[in-house]
């Protein structure tokens, strides 16, 4: 594998838990790998999983989706909707041959600064080991843009 390969990771995070958790990582000065690019949405319930596919299409090698723990949603139940959609989405992607090791669904609360760093490092290491996600771009290229 190309030693210089550095994966691109896109993270979709909710404003109230994971974004705040990532802020806490910063405030606590916990270091993690710099491959991740965070996109802020109000709630994981806002996330249309087409966005995840779009991220992979546009060159991301791995994606993180993270929000409030069950029961802790700022909007009461948005994360449950996200989770329910995720279950369906995951199954469908598996059928379609998308490597689900590329997409990580997680809960990181506003108090879990260290957890965020750990999550990013784990995902980055895993995706780095998997290499660039060229297959996905090929599939997309073969299809209709």
């Amino acid at each position: 594998m190309d030693e210089k390969f550095e994966p691109k990771i896109t993270a979709f995070v909710c404003n109230w838990c994971t974004y705040a958790g990532a802020d806490l990582t910063g405030t606590s000065r916990i270091k993690y790998q710099s491959n991740v690019r965070v996109l802020r949405v109000p709630c994981t319930g806002r996330i249309d999983y087409m966005m995840v596919l779009k991220a992979l299409h546009k060159g991301a090698d791995g994606v993180i989706v993270s929000g409030c723990h069950p029961n802790d949603c700022h909007y009461t139940s948005g994360n449950y909707h996200a989770r329910r959609r995720w279950m369906v989405f995951k199954k469908m992607m598996e059928v379609m041959g998308v490597d689900m090791r590329r997409i990580t669904f997680s809960w990181v609360s506003a108090a879990e600064g260290a957890r965020w760093a750990q999550l990013v490092n784990e995902v980055t290491d895993q995706v780095r080991a998997l290499g660039p996600y060229a297959e996905f771009r090929q599939i997309i290229g073969a299809g209709i843009e």
Partner: peptide, 21 residues
């Protein structure tokens, strides 16, 4: 700050990330 300079080491990658953000 919270998502870049405080959590990464000084270097080109960090500067690049800042520009990306």
């Amino acid at each position: 700050r919270e998502h870049c300079s405080w959590v990464h080491e000084k270097g080109d990658a960090t500067t690049q990330k800042a520009a990306d953000l």
